[in-house]
């Protein structure tokens, strides 16, 4: 067996796995009857349907006539840096406060670009910190710690 359309094949596998996941965990709940459906009914039907659709898509990936469904290389650098920056923001927000979380977000995510320039990034951080303070903290009165824990009273 040869994978002819990799995009289709792997999307099929992805769909089928999601379908199986919901199908299996829906078994923990009550199916109910047709007139009084339990919480498991709809997810079970949909999970089964998704597995079926996934199988069709994957099968088409194996039997496609052309070989044009190649998957472009994953570029892990921007992926990891952008999403890592977001996670860092989430983790830092409560303990370290908005300003530090924002700086971490801007600086880490900026490394994701090929044209990283330290001076510009620092200026951008300061600009955004000012903007966020004015708009969200003073303007919209958002309740979020601004400063790190040890500096709060």
């Amino acid at each position: 067996m040869q994978i002819r359309n990799a995009k289709d094949f792997w999307s099929g596998i992805l769909f089928a796995s999601f379908g199986a996941f919901f199908l299996v965990f829906a078994r923990d709940y009550d199916m109910g009857k047709a007139a009084r459906m339990g919480p498991a009914f709809f997810p079970t039907v949909l999970g089964g349907l998704l597995m079926l659709l996934g199988a069709i898509v994957a099968a088409r990936g194996l039997t496609a006539r052309s070989n044009d469904g190649r998957i472009d290389r994953f570029q892990f650098k921007p992926l990891a840096l952008v999403l890592g920056a977001v996670v860092a923001f989430g983790l830092l927000l409560q303990p370290a406060g908005l300003l530090f979380a924002l700086a971490a977000l801007v600086i880490i995510s900026s490394f994701g670009s090929d044209e990283f320039r330290l001076r510009d990034v620092l200026l951008l951080t300061i600009f955004l910190a000012g903007l966020v303070l004015v708009v969200f903290i003073y303007g919209l009165a958002m309740t979020v710690p601004v400063l790190p824990g040890f500096l709060r009273d």
């Binding site: 952008v82 920056a85 977001v86 923001f89 801007v106 320039r117």
Partner: peptide, 12 residues
């Protein structure tokens, strides 16, 4: 390169 970190800040 200056735009997307700003977008991320507003998103988060």
């Amino acid at each position: 390169r200056l735009l997307y970190p700003a977008i991320l800040v507003f998103c988060c």
